[in-house]
């Protein structure tokens, strides 16, 4: 069984910014905060499955905010996770209560850090729509773009992982092609930008 070491808040932040340490920090968060985050959802009419989904989304949001250097540590990690899940759950409840509401509507942030969090969550709704388009790409394209933009691998490293492509130049051309396809799908989808601008208006 894997031993999970203790992390201070500062260590969690540092670990989430470092690819090698990220998994350890996520495990620590799961071990120490899963129960109280789940309790929040259960205490508010949610099911265990709702909690499992929401906690994953909370973590994705938190990691994204940390990796974009938008978390300044003015509140504790636990409090911040709590405000994310609270916001996600409230907006989910609103969404469920209103069948016509295609987008989640978030509360206005109460201070600068929370406003940054809310803006990030609004953008995430927009990004989710883009992810739907991303899923329409071929498997090779998806894998390649993840290697480039998530794992931040060099073309040489990717060439080793994708030997079916003859050389780095072929891979580079493939990357342009994949990004062009994704961009074209985004550009052709007029609803996306309207959706984004409307959502931002709610976020305040």
């Amino acid at each position: 069984m894997q031993v999970i070491r203790d992390y201070s808040d500062q260590e969690i932040i540092a670990a989430l910014k470092s690819d090698r340490e990220t998994d350890g920090a996520i495990r620590f968060i799961y071990k120490n905060y899963y129960g109280s985050l789940e309790n929040y959802v259960l205490n508010n009419n949610g099911s265990r499955n709702d909690a499992a989904d929401l906690i994953q989304e909370t973590l994705v949001t938190f990691i994204d905010i940390v990796q974009q250097n938008k978390f300044r540590g003015e509140s504790s990690v636990k409090s911040f996770l709590y405000s994310i899940i609270r916001n996600l759950w409230l907006s989910e409840m609103r969404k469920r209560n209103n069948a016509d509401n295609r987008n989640r509507v978030f509360e206005k942030g109460k201070d600068t850090e929370e406003q940054a969090m809310v803006q990030d969550m609004v953008k995430r709704e927009y990004q989710k729509s883009i992810l739907d388009l991303f899923e329409k790409l071929g498997e090779k394209c998806k894998q390649l773009l993840l290697f480039v933009y998530y794992e931040d691998l060099s073309m040489k490293e990717i060439a080793e992982k994708m030997p079916e492509y003859e050389n780095e130049q072929v891979l580079r051309n493939k990357k342009y092609k994949c990004m062009k396809s994704l961009e074209q799908m985004i550009n052709d989808n007029q609803d996306l930008k309207t959706q984004f601008k409307n959502a931002l208006r709610y976020a305040g």
Binding site: V60, Q67, Q127, F134, V148, Y150
Partner: peptide, 14 residues
Amino acid sequence: ARNAVRLKGIQQRV
């Protein structure tokens, strides 16, 4: 698009 791909990576990891 790039940000969405990054988000996909984080989602997969979590």
